[in-house]
Amino acid sequence: MTPITTRTVEYRADGLTMTGHLALPAGTGCRPAVLLGPEGMGLSDVERQRADALAELGYVSFAFDLHGGRYLSNPDEMLARCLPLLADPERMRNLGHAALGVLRAEPRTDPDRIAAVGYGTGGAIALELGRDGVDLRAIGTVNGLTTGRPGEAARIRCPVWAGVGSEDPIMPPAQRDAFTAEMQAAGVDWRLVVYGGALHAFHHPPVDHPAPPGVGHHPRHAQRAWHDIINLLTECVPVTE
């Protein structure tokens, strides 16, 4: 079997030169594609490996950058950049559109079969692309259960799957309720999975710097969330020869 291929792609967004990771499946034909967004700290080997895993399943996958090639391991620095970003839907959409442009420019991407999946800030960006009316086949967001501007969720044209830890202090029950109320009022085909006992970023393997309070890895639920995302993709953007 021909192995997957990967390459680094530089592109401009948010006034920065971004460095994303493109993973291509074996073969030569067009394939469904997945735009993959990272947690607020930025693109790391975790997302690169997820993009590679998606390519092994037959998807063209692009893991996009948030911080101009930097990984913000300092929580204060990360919050100083991400909080203003999360409060500005247009900035999030511009970041998403720039990355989506890279994915669409890949000749092996089927432009009619693209999904967006993200974690934390990356998940919020995936949702904003949906609220902007982008033609996506599925949206998946883990920890990024943000609400949008009034009425704009009605522009989401695809199923939305969301996952969150029950003990996540950053996405508490009130935030989850606001998100689901927005989706329901807009008539979106939505699902929410609450993973019992999990904290924020439960999906992310342990890192080599101190985790902020309320953040922690849950190996069992991390695996379950990944399976749930794969099931979403299999349902909405199946790989066919």
Rank of each mutant, 00 (worst) to 15 (best):
F64L: 02
V239H: 08
C30Y: 00
R155D: 07
V207P: 00
R220M: 14
H209R: 11
N74T: 12
F62K: 02
T19K: 14
P107C: 10
A153V: 11
D208F: 03
V215W: 01
P150F: 07
A63Y: 01
C82E: 02
L136I: 12
L54N: 01
G216P: 04
A154N: 02
L233E: 00
L24T: 08
P219H: 12
T19I: 14
L100A: 10
S73N: 05
G151F: 11
A186C: 01
P159L: 14
R131F: 13
L232I: 11
F64Y: 06
R31V: 03
D135M: 06
A201Q: 09
T240V: 13
L36A: 04
A198D: 02
C30E: 12
V164Q: 05
E106G: 08
P75A: 08
A63M: 07
E56F: 01
N143Y: 15
M92Y: 00
T109Y: 02
W161D: 02
V188T: 13
V142Y: 05
D228H: 14
V207R: 11
A98G: 05
G120W: 07
W226D: 10
T6P: 10
R12Y: 09
P89I: 05
V215C: 09
G58L: 09
M41L: 04
L95F: 02
G58P: 03
A154E: 07
G187C: 11
G140Q: 06
A126C: 15
L127N: 03
A51V: 13
C158W: 14
T17D: 15
W161C: 02
G69T: 09
E10W: 12
W190Y: 11
Y11F: 15
D88L: 00
D208K: 04
R137V: 06
A162K: 04
G133A: 12
Q184D: 13
L79S: 11
M41H: 01
H217S: 03
G42P: 03
E241Y: 04
P89C: 07
A201G: 04
G68F: 00
A178T: 10
I125L: 12
P107I: 07
A51K: 09
P3Y: 02
E47T: 06
G165A: 12
A181R: 10
H21G: 08
L232C: 10
E167W: 01
V34T: 09
V9I: 14
H200L: 03
S166P: 05
I170T: 03
F179C: 13
G122N: 11
M183Y: 03
E182H: 06
P89W: 02
R113I: 03
L57F: 07
A153R: 01
P150Y: 05
P84V: 07
G216D: 05
R224A: 15
L86N: 02
L127S: 06
L66W: 00
R93T: 13
A53D: 13
V239D: 09
T6W: 08
D189W: 06
S44T: 15
N94L: 13
R104W: 03
T17S: 15
D45F: 05
